[in-house]
């Protein structure tokens, strides 16, 4: 019992660390492409973010199982890049089909973001980090969820700031991606403040 309890606690810590101190976007720069292009409106940002949380949690878990129980016994660790991508693509396709069939309303809101996710480097990145950090299964779930929530948080904050920014006078060359990156830098600076809260 105690073993499970401490494992759950570890997973919780991993989850919070992934959201704040090791935010996948602000410290490892993964998922930058959609971050700069889809962060113009809060609503779309929230949709994409929610889809990322969902897909990331499940694909890291699936990839963990595939890595531990298929690739490692076969000594084909180097194959993980290909296998992870296939699993992610297949999962996204599957979810798209299910949502389309059972909840057309959700599909309208979330569906358009799903294909975008397959090429989101944060999703593959989370799976690769999970392998490198040698997490246990429960920790992996905590990590996948936390990394997704961290990404959601960052893109939501960015979208909120950017809608305000429409009104302000930004130097011409800095408009668009330039100012987005500066704001991201400031957010990263703020997130460094979380270091030490969790160790």
């Amino acid at each position: 019992m105690n073993g499970i309890g401490s494992e759950m606690w570890l997973a919780l810590v991993t989850c919070f660390a992934a959201i704040f101190t090791q935010n996948i976007l602000l410290t490892t720069f993964l998922g930058m492409c959609p971050f700069t292009s889809v962060s113009r409106e809060v609503k779309t940002a929230a949709g994409l973010g929610a889809a990322v949380v969902f897909v990331m949690t499940f694909t890291t878990a699936l990839n963990y199982l595939a890595y531990k129980h298929v690739l490692l016994p076969l000594e084909l660790e180097f194959f993980r890049f290909i296998l992870f991508i296939i699993i992610i693509a297949a999962f996204v396709q599957f979810v798209e089909m299910v949502i389309d069939r059972y909840s057309p309303k959700l599909y309208q809101n979330l569906g358009i973001f799903l294909p975008l996710i397959t090429v989101n480097c944060a999703i593959l990145g989370a799976s690769l980090f999970m392998v490198i950090r040698e997490y246990t299964f429960i920790q992996t779930i905590g990590y996948g969820f936390g990394a997704g929530v961290g990404w959601l948080l960052a893109i939501l904050a960015m979208a909120g700031i950017r809608t305000r920014l429409n009104e302000s006078r930004v130097p011409e060359g800095l408009r668009g991606p330039g100012i987005t990156l500066i704001i991201a830098g400031m957010m990263a600076l703020a997130f460094i403040g979380f270091t030490g809260v969790l160790s």
């Binding site: 602000l26 800095l174 330039g178 500066i182 991201a184 830098g185 990263a188």
Partner: peptide, 11 residues
């Protein structure tokens, strides 16, 4: 050398 530096330099 820390992450924010990358954002600022790229911008």
């Amino acid at each position: 050398v820390m992450p924010p530096g990358a954002f600022f330099t790229l911008a």
